[in-house]
Amino acid sequence: MTIRIDGLEKRYGSVVALRGIDLEIPGGGIVGLLGPNGAGKTTLVEIMEGLREPTRGSVSVLGLDPTTQARRLKERIGVQLQSTSIPLDLTPAEVLGLYASFYPRSRPIDEGLEQVGLEAKRKALVRNLSGGQRQRLALGMALIHEPELLILDEPTTGLDPVARRGIHEVIRQYRASGHSVILTTHYIEEAELLCDRVIVIRAGEVVADGTPFQLIAKAEGVSTLWIAFSGPFDPAPLVKAGATPHGVEGNHHRFVTRDPAAAVVALGDILRGQEVSLVDLRMKRPTLEDVYLELVGGDADGEPGEEE
């Protein structure tokens, strides 16, 4: 078990940031912590990293207690903090060399630079790197000692899609070597694309946990169907199957339903029984985004629950 958390609570004075988190994360794969700003994601990962102490409950990371066995734990985890803070007047090669010297074992600097695609920038000063390049360097800093577990706090926030894909590529390669990654994000597409498991946190509590597919399947979201027929038709079979007409867009009749499978069967009945033929059929299943918005609801803009 890579991470085991029991009854974790964290308070800052009278503000409760985490209220009773229980989690078990086995080794391997990418786990995404998804939630609005202020949900407690950063507090949670910073407790795993040993930067903050729990108010109540127990936390074990790689079998170690982050509070009392911090030094041994820090040798085995790689961390990227939320706001990238790299000395501006050093080059990427010097930065990686500096961080490599903090660990008993580390990989060669050239390999480290190559891993995050910064070979060409090895002699440029950090202050002259783009946001995406700095973020890749921050990832290189977290990977230089070949950690068993990588903890990333919003690794792609503020990056353009191309830079974001570059970061995803590095994270996937790291996973391919059998290691575990925990990352926080508030990009739903990122969680859907990258993560093997998504844990949704809201106001300091876990509100959903599963693969992106499981989360979508469990949700009560509605599907939308757009159907275009040649000639007039009677929608009675569709309505009987639970689909509600929702107007017309161009040639397409729109229906919404919670049971898209039944609607498709009813569509078959229409085609067999009525003098029409199907011109076009489109369907939109609920996405992880719909599920997410359903879960965090009005909290999507954040609520005070976290320092900073």
Binding site: E49, L51, R71, E75, L81, S85, F102, Y103
Partner: peptide, 8 residues
């Protein structure tokens, strides 16, 4: 803070 999450 970044140094602090290493064993330095």
């Amino acid at each position: 803070r970044r140094h602090r999450v290493t064993p330095v």
